Simulated scan of single mutants.
Amino acid sequence: MTSYWRNNRDRILGQMSIWFNRDEVPTGIYCDYKDCDYGAILPQVAVSGTLTRRAVEPTWMTASNAYEDRIGSELKGMIQAPPSYHFVGADVDSQELWIASVIGDASFSGIHGSTALGWMTLQGNKSAGTDMHSKTASLIGIGRDQAKVLNYGRIYGAGVNFAERLLMQFNRQLSSTEARSKSKSMYKMTKGERKYILNEEGRRLCEAFKDLSDRKYEAFSKNELRNLMDYHQIPSQHFMELIDKMVWDGGTESHMFNRLEEIAQGECPRTPILKCCISRSLVPSVVHNDVRFLVKSEDRYRAALALQITNLLTRAVCSYQLGMNDLPMSVAFFSCIDIDKVLRKEVTHNCLTPSNPHGLSGGYGIPLGEGLDVTQLLNRTKGSLEKDSTLPPATK
């Protein structure tokens, strides 16, 4: 129960907080209570702190969900918007997964969804159990949230050993042999198998070996290459002298990993969209894909629509930079824009914890927020960013 607070206490108490004098608070946002004070925390944010220009901040951007058995886990929900204001924002849907899959699609054919990973990302559905995380979970018999950890670990470069250790953490009854077998099965299905493209010398030798002569430009397995070397009586230590490059083959993510490795191993590695190089400011442990704006309550739906349009334009630029001039509807918009009075993880969470036993509604009188998709926002705003006098009045 105390683990979350123990791990975060010093960072929370060390925040830079500012309390306002009454004459410094803008007119119109005083609350009804005479003893109410107003203040703000100045988060120490590096606004473009990563390679992909995401913000870096170790406390508020990485705050966890509120759990009924974790003291202090309601942390994010304690930050409230002042009266007549709302927080409007969204958590980018599968950002890394989509970027990874669209790079693979662009490298393979230049068509969205042309690789197995790309198709699963565009068409997979969590409720139907057809998305990437659900598929991985069913393959190796773990929960979807656990599969999500494995999937992102793999995309960021973790190998079979990492997956094996993680599976044994998830299931204490699993032996190391079983965990190893499940890990290998998952990697074979997703990343594929390591194969080899021959160089000019290798292709010349291949032509003289009738079993492989018609495949000299294809990817070869290690066993096939050993057969080729045995035929020509070439010692095994000269294996790499016949290889032009190594590739992944036969997995749902093979094309994506091949392209990422091609970029990483180039003379001057640059990201394919922003064309920028690796920076020392890349700190994965404190990065997040969440964006929030504090807006006047009367403007909250227009701000949410503007955020949807921004996502559309951003994803369009990503596709264009990769040579694709269209964008699938399934990734064009945020699945949901959060409109809320506090900074909780989910607008439907009451943030009930041991240190907040009455929740946000009972303890602070804060109602649940709204989560609206693009269709609902178009209905609310009539598809316009202009002010509309028919909007419901601002709430305190």
Rank of each mutant, 00 (worst) to 15 (best):
A66W: 08
G89R: 08
A208F: 14
M229T: 13
M186Q: 02
H232W: 10
F239H: 02
Y301L: 03
P43Q: 11
D91H: 03
L378F: 09
E74A: 12
D69L: 11
Y4N: 01
W119T: 04
A137K: 01
T52W: 01
K34G: 14
F333V: 09
G266Y: 04
M189W: 14
K387R: 11
N151V: 15
V56S: 13
P82E: 12
V45L: 15
S64L: 12
V317I: 09
Y4S: 00
L198P: 03
K195Y: 03
T62N: 11
G323A: 10
L322D: 10
Q237D: 15
D37W: 13
L377D: 12
C31Q: 14
I71T: 04
P82Y: 14
S185P: 03
E200P: 00
G113H: 15
S236R: 13
D326E: 12
Y301C: 00
E346F: 14
L372Y: 00
Y38D: 04
Q376C: 04
V149N: 15
I273G: 05
N199D: 11
G371E: 06
G124L: 04
S183D: 06
R302Q: 13
D249Q: 05
D35H: 15
T2R: 10
C276H: 01
L385Y: 05
I111R: 15
E262C: 01
V160S: 03
G250F: 11
R300L: 02
V149C: 12
Y156E: 08
G118H: 09
F87S: 07
M168A: 01
T381H: 05
F333G: 05
L166R: 15
P392H: 08
T2N: 08
G251S: 12
R180F: 10
A316T: 13
N21A: 09
L97G: 03
D93V: 00
V102L: 12
A163I: 14
N350T: 12
T271N: 03
M189T: 08
A137S: 13
A208L: 15
Y38S: 12
E74V: 04
Q15D: 02
G28S: 06
V25S: 06
F257E: 02
G371F: 01
